[in-house]
Design a protein around this nucleic acid. Sequence first.
RNA 1: GACCUCAUAGCUCAACUGGAUAGAGCAACUGCCUUCUAAGCAGUAGGUUGCAGGUUCGACUCCUGCUGGGGUCACCA
Length: 606
Amino acid sequence: MNIAQPLIPTICKCFEEKFNVQLSPNEISFQTTRKEFEGDITLVIFPFLKKVQQKPEALAQAIGEYLMQHHQQIARFNVIKGFLNISFAHTVWVETLAQIANTTHYGVLPANGQKVMVEYSSPNTNKPLHLGHMRNIFLGYSVANILKANGYEVMKVNLVNDRGIHICKSMLAYQKFGKGETPQSTGIKGDHLVGNYYVVFDRENKKATAELLATYQKTYPNENPEQLAELAAKNSPLLLEAQEMLRRWEEGDPEIVQLWQTMNNWVYEGFDATYQKMGVDFDKTYYESNTYLLGKAVVEEGLAKGLFFKKEDGSVWVDLTADGLDQKLLLRADGTSVYITQDLGTADMKYADFPMQKSVYVVGNEQDYHFKVLKLILQKLGRSYADGIYHLSYGMVELPTGKMKSREGTVVDADDLIDEMVHIARERTKELGKIDDFESAEAEALYHMLAMGALKYYLLRVDPKKKMLFNPEESIDFQGDTGVYLQYTHAKIAAILRRARELGVDASPAAFSNATQLAPQEIELIQVLAAYPKRVADAAEEYAPSLIAAYAYELAKTYSRLYAELSIFNEPDAALKSLRVALSAQTAKVLKSALQLLGIQAPERM
RNA sequence: GACCUCAUAGCUCAACUGGAUAGAGCAACUGCCUUCUAAGCAGUAGGUUGCAGGUUCGACUCCUGCUGGGGUCACCA
């Protein structure tokens, strides 16, 4: 609902008639009037002064008068310096609310025939998910929802990194120290069990390296200690064993493959449980064990086209120096692939599976360079989908002590954090005692809903591009600018709507269409409601759920003020009473929709 | 060393992409439950937007330099 849109052609006409100046419509844009001034929308005059030799006040006055003459919807206007503030008649707001009420899927665009793939989560199978993954996962899930709302057909995929030296480390540690433990025998969730062995490997490997270093130092007392340390790290017997294991895995050694399958399945069971708690899902899962050999054909293709070149040792490179980047290795001299090789192959595979116009990769900003290179190479190869590749590069979640490191155990575990949040939600809700009549299963479902709402909102409200700080000492808030506040506002409105049904209040547009004198709180709320579709579009364009989060908060805040300052059911004017119930219903509708885009559920009671 | 990126209230984050007197939440303080859920509402206090220049009618936003944090520059992924 863009209320200002119809004014734009009129302004163009005004410039033409009065000043003989041609203006294109996209040169004109309105902003909402700041609270300290009277008006609904504001036109900034300064940009036009170069084309029209006028003083800003005079030009603003002239445009204002012209608009008044041509648009009955405008009640009045005022000019302050170079700002033209326009106030609409109350009927405009009533009409706007009616339009919103009559739109079933408000803010949601019809299918646009475009396909987009969103890859997110993409975990390693050697350790459980942590807070950093949660930011990734919630971002990916939310962006997928936002794109759907903008008319795209969306395919959500997970690319699991299930092979490589890091997996072998867990496997080796398990083989050596595991004593045949299983998730069943220990009662430890599969991903955590495997993750523990990754830590065991690191610990044992450090010991072994230290011992090796000690013998080196005895044998070569005159050598540079740093060089010795490096040598010891490289030749640690455990690391060599892990590398040997990787070789055997690639050869298909049945014993190794068997162990690998067993341990990975434990991890997948663990991940699935966590994804389910998070309320996220995927349409397809890719496994790197199936894709790591892909991409060699793409490298051959690039060689044939003369885009890549071969060095004397047989390794294949691409020279991106003309594009401001470096030379990049694409294939080792022994013909084996590197990370980017498989990503090239996987990109083609994705397109074959789902011929998309856009492909979003939700991956941390430490890989900015990698994705620049990947996209550039695919563009050079002339892939139709290459321009549509978007690296949703998000900032790391940091702790007060710095970055999280799995090996060093300085991570905030996803399962632990969820459990803690549920615990807090349970305590807090019981204290308030508002749902004492709930069945226990119903209550537990609510605690979980609130816990996830708090967590998701906490991670999504920050601009994805920016790094963010999490302090484990302070629990995630349930008050103020939080997910729980949004859920609370929804529950409060739901109570209003139940009461309205009981009382039989008619909230249809017909019942409030002749409301005339609206309160400022009502107008402000309608304005916020009217802004929703634009915000949904902006969020898709910028791949930024944070815009939706900010909007949802603004909406809830605006409603809460109205709720506190105006009575709904004690309002004597029937039209106004209907209007307020309708306003409540539309706020609930939009709030629920916005929360859905964030992957947050809206309770009816809490 | 080269390149990328960030720096806003005590703390965590905004600022509609260059517009008016930079806004929220938390923490502190003050009011408001005999009317629809107080997980709420209203208010007070808190700022030289890291520093120095520049561009312009106008700069948190763009440019240059400096300082400080993070990242990348692997035949790791």
